[in-house]
Design a protein around this nucleic acid. Structure first.
Length: 873
RNA sequence: GGGAGUAUAGCUCAGCUGGUUCAGAGCAUCUGCCUUACAAGCAGAGGGUCCGGGGUUCGAAUCCCUGUGCUCCCACCA
């Protein structure tokens, strides 16, 4: 295959993705190989690809591609999430643009619009993932509201209900007045808010005294039913049992006493509003107080009290402040900072509200799920998240699973005309149950299905099971083969929403963990450390980056700065580095590809040595990379290969085997070089799938169904550590000679002579390499120093580069003296250790021995330098 | 208010069980080079109070205490 002269990522990437798809390389069916399964954290169906997705999916793809090449049956299942609140909000907004109010539509009409929206905008994100190179099994693409997944959700709901784990009840919930639905505790985010503390006067009914109450929410006086003080508070003992008048409202309410009240806070008097505060609700229950709900679902005031009706909660606050002041009932206000809960989705302040909701008891489910993580049956990477997980699991609260929305899985509960309800998977079953409960005469039309849908996470928590139909069809061959999955890659902010709940569902429905390990990525930030967000406008468009740097380049960029669990500071410059690396690989290929072969030519000794060395180095690197992957150090693995390719292979190996300009290369060396190239491409492929596939096809003729994606990942073998160490000395020698060239301004073309005082650290076997890499005419073993020649020492070996009249004695002496000073200091520190009896006595034998070795080396070097200085003088 | 993490070169980060991998890597910077694959490159070089202060030890970037900075999670104080 012909390779273009210039590396232009855009020109090759699309082509290969199509090739992979038509070859079916990403499709998986159960077979005799071990399975390697990854389920994608399903993105919102109408979402757009952002940098977080890029990081997350690049990591998954690297792991999946590597597994696929390592003899495993890799299966990466993609899909999308219906994202109840987010999607419904988008559809409502869209309809509003068209002049349609949600309230004017029936449920069926609205859902029709929603599905239409989903068909139009849904799954764009999955197409975008293809640009990235994600090797998902697209034949398995799922959606949390498709047939199997929906049926699974309903079955699990009915099952949990029948087990007594799901119940319905009136509770104080987090109410989102914008979406007009209840939220789970996890969907509420607390933010520090600057507000005011209002001090209100409650006049006593008897006499003309008053009590002052501090509150942040004066509008809730409409729902006040009592004042409460601490029974031990001497200031207020005399008023307990008396009555006061609610400011403006005029209602008479009692003053009660309860130790819950903190005497230190505010004035030590608490107003009790059971409908609009969780703690007040508990006090209300305890003292059997009335509950006055003053809000409509949208956060406006209702007609119960007959004041401020229809006004928004925040407008009322302002109005009431003014009215209180005018009535002389506002004692004072002061600035105050407190934490206010906001809706994670709609970003409006949450209203604690009493309402009838469905809940799932979590206590029993949490036990086994906690154990699985704490005993490392499920491995968290990094492990620090185990703490977070444990804390949440040990303090878990019941999960509010109902949402007052239409887009989602409708709760399979049907109400009977005479009260009561039944829970069943289908309406027919419901009718059957209903007849048993409420009489044989009941008809379908008598049943009324619950209006609410389930929390989105109530479907996602089944994802690793429902993707393989393990709920509806337990024990089927697919679930048996693919479950438990291997690695889950996700962000730590959904550890409770998703990870914890999947583990609970796995333990409950499979009696087995859903995945073997969880890799937590960091949050992608910009280079200033700010979270990337739409509103800041600091998030680059991933597709734009791909257009400019290629998917391979962006993938490398993401990975280079992504230690697990650490936030990643994304800098576009990293993309440039990634693209440059692709370019490097490309050009190395072009060089190898340009060589003409002469089958009759003997292999040069320098080439033979180069092949021997690089083969060992490759083995060592493969072992290293294996270890990196085993401990999820993906970024390190890439850097290891990066340096292997750029520095060792391109910088050293290729230069060593490169034939002289215009001459051909021997067959043996070329074959071995191409073999190395093949292995390097395979090692790089999980990280940079496109450029490696292109060049792999360029390496030799391939059959139509061949692809690097399904080739075998090379495995590391044994290697000669000593050989590698010796070679490092050769490289040091070459570098030293290059330095002399640079200092003396000697062009590379000019050949130099090298004299060596051979000792045990000099290995003349490598002379051919020295000759080639440093452009030497000869390497001569001598016993006499050459005071007239520039010299250097590698380890303990002295080298001289004879140059006619080019020695600058001054500079040479200064250099030598500098080195001498350093070595003498070094020796002194070693001697200090060795003369310390306690060190010699207490330190391990090995450590002491290395100190002696250091001393001997240093002494030898010092001696050599002294001699040289003497000779120069 | 409770808990966790983190602080190492200009930047992003390695440094695992204290000791030749102990002060490292990549990028950036500086100095030479259009050397016949690559200037998206090649050859070199410089750069650090390992956050401050104590301690343990023969020996501390590493362990302990303490202070400071940053980050995150959890929590109803009106």
């Amino acid at each position: 295959m012909k390779i273009a002269d210039k590396y232009v990522p855009g020109d090759i990437e699309g082509k290969w993705y199509d090739y992979w798809i038509s070859g079916g390389y990403f499709h998986s069916e159960p077979d005799s190989r071990p399975a390697y399964t990854v389920v994608i954290p399903p993105p919102n169906v109408t979402g757009m690809l952002h940098m977080g997705h890029m990081l997350n999916n690049t990591l998954q793809d690297v792991m999946v591609r590597r597994a696929r090449m390592s003899g495993m049956n890799a299966c990466w299942v993609p899909g999308t999430d219906h994202a109840s609140i987010a999607t419904e909000a988008k559809v409502v907004a869209k309809l509003k643009e068209q002049g349609i109010e949600k309230s004017s539509l029936t449920r069926e009409e609205f859902l029709k619009h929603a599905w239409q929206w989903k068909e139009e905008h849904g799954g764009i994100i999955l197409k975008q993932l293809r640009r990235l190179g994600a090797s998902c099994d697209w034949d398995r693409t799922a959606f949390t509201m498709d047939e199997i997944r929906s049926a699974s959700v309903i079955r699990v709901f009915v099952d949990l209900y029948n087990k007594g784990l799901i119940y319905r009840g009136v509770r104080m919930v987090n109410w989102d007045p914008a979406a007009q639905t209840a939220l789970s505790d996890e969907e509420v985010v607390f933010r520090e808010t600057h507000s005011k503390l209002y001090y209100l006067r409650y006049n006593l009914i008897e006499g003309d005294g008053y009590l002052v109450v501090a509150t942040t929410r004066p509008e809730t006086i409409l729902g006040d039913v009592a004042l409460c003080v601490n029974p031990n508070d001497p200031r207020y003992k005399h008023v307990v049992g008396h009555a006061v008048r609610v400011p403006l409202v005029g209602r008479t309410i009692p003053v009660i006493a309860d130790e819950y009240v903190d005497m230190e806070f505010g004035t030590g008097v608490l107003k009790v509003t059971p409908a609009h505060d969780v703690n007040d609700y508990m006090i209300g229950e305890k003292y059997n107080l009335e509950v006055i709900d003053i809000f409509n679902p949208d956060g406006t005031i209702n007609g119960k009290v007959g004041m401020y009706e229809g006004m928004d909660r925040f407008a009322v606050r302002k109005q009431i402040e003014q009215d209180l002041a005018e009535a002389g009932l506002l004692d004072r206000t002061e600035a105050y900072t407190n934490n206010v809960g906001f809706s994670e989705r709609t970003h409006v302040p949450i209203e604690p509200k009493l309402s009838m909701q469905w809940f799932l008891k979590m206590g029993e489910l949490a036990g086994p799920a906690l154990d699985a993580v704490m005993n490392d049956d499920i491995k968290f990477v990094p492990a620090k998240f185990k703490n977070t997980y444990r804390h949440w699991m040990e303090n878990i609260k019941d999960w509010c699973i109902s949402r007052q929305l239409w887009w989602g899985h409708r709760i399979p509960a049907w109400y009977l005309p005479e009260g009561g309800y039944v829970v069943a998977e289908t309406v027919d079953e419901a009718l059957e149950l209903a007849r048993k409960k409420g009489g044989e005469g009941l008809q379908l039309s008598d049943l009324r299905q619950d209006e609410d849908v389930l929390d989105t996470w109530f479907s996602s928590w089944l994802w690793p099971i429902s993707l393989f139909d393990g709920i509806m069809n337990p024990g089927n061959p697919e679930i048996k083969y693919y479950y438990p999955t291997n690695d889950l890659v996700t962000a730590p902010d959904i550890i409770f929403f998703w990870v914890a709940r999947m583990i609970m569902a796995g333990c409950e429905y499979m009696h087995e963990k859903p995945f073997r390990s969880v890799y937590f990525t960091g949050i992608v930030r910009d280079k200033l450390g700010r979270k990337m967000s739409k509103s800041l406008g600091n998030s680059p468009d991933p597709l734009d980056l791909i257009d400019r740097y290629g998917a391979d380049g962006v993938r490398v960029a993401m990975l280079l700065c992504s230690a697990a669990g650490n936030d990643i500071m994304f800098d576009e410059a990293m993309c440039e580095q990634g693209r440059n690396f692709g370019n490097k690989i490309w050009n190395a290929f072009r060089l190898v590809n340009s060589w003409n072969i002469d089958e009759n030519k003997e292999q040069e000794e320098s080439s033979r040595l180069a092949v021997e060395w690089f083969g060992n180095l490759l083995d060592r690197t493969l072992v290293q990379v294996d270890a990196d992957f085993a401990s999820y150090r993906i970024s390190d693995a890439l850097m290891t290969i990066y340096k292997l390719f750029w520095d060792e292979f391109s910088g050293w190996y290729l230069e060593m085997v490169k034939p002289a300009y215009g001459s051909p290369i021997d067959g043996k060396t070329l074959a071995q070089t191409k073999m190395f190239f093949d292995k390097l491409l395979k090692m790089l492929h999980p990280f940079m799938p496109f450029v490696t596939e292109e060049l792999w096809h360029g390496l030799k003729e391939r059959a139509d169904d061949e692809s690097i994606t399904i080739s075998d990942m090379p495995v590391g073998g044994s290697y000669d550590e000593n050989l590698l160490a010796r070679f490092e000395l050769v490289k040091e020698t070459v570098t030293a000679i290059r330095n002399i060239r640079q200092q003396k301004n000697i062009p590379n073309k000019e050949q130099l002579k090298l004299k060596v005082i051979c000792d045990e650290n000099f290995c003349e076997v490598y002379n051919p390499v020295l000759v080639k890499m440093a452009n030497l005419s000869e390497v001569e073993c001598v016993s006499e120093k050459d005071p007239a020649a520039p010299s250097f020492i590698v380890k303990t070996t002295e080298y001289f580069v004879p140059l006619e009249g080019m020695v600058d004695v001054e500079t040479e002496l200064r250099k030598l003296n500098d080195e001498l000073t350093y070595l003498e200091g070094f020796l002194a520190s070693v001697m200090k250790k060795l003369s310390n009896e306690r060190f010699v006595a207490n330190a391990p034998q090995k450590v002491v021995e290395t100190e002696y070795a250091k001393r001997n080396d240093a002494e030898a070097k010092i001696k050599a330098i002294r001699e040289r200085i003497a000779a120069l003088k």
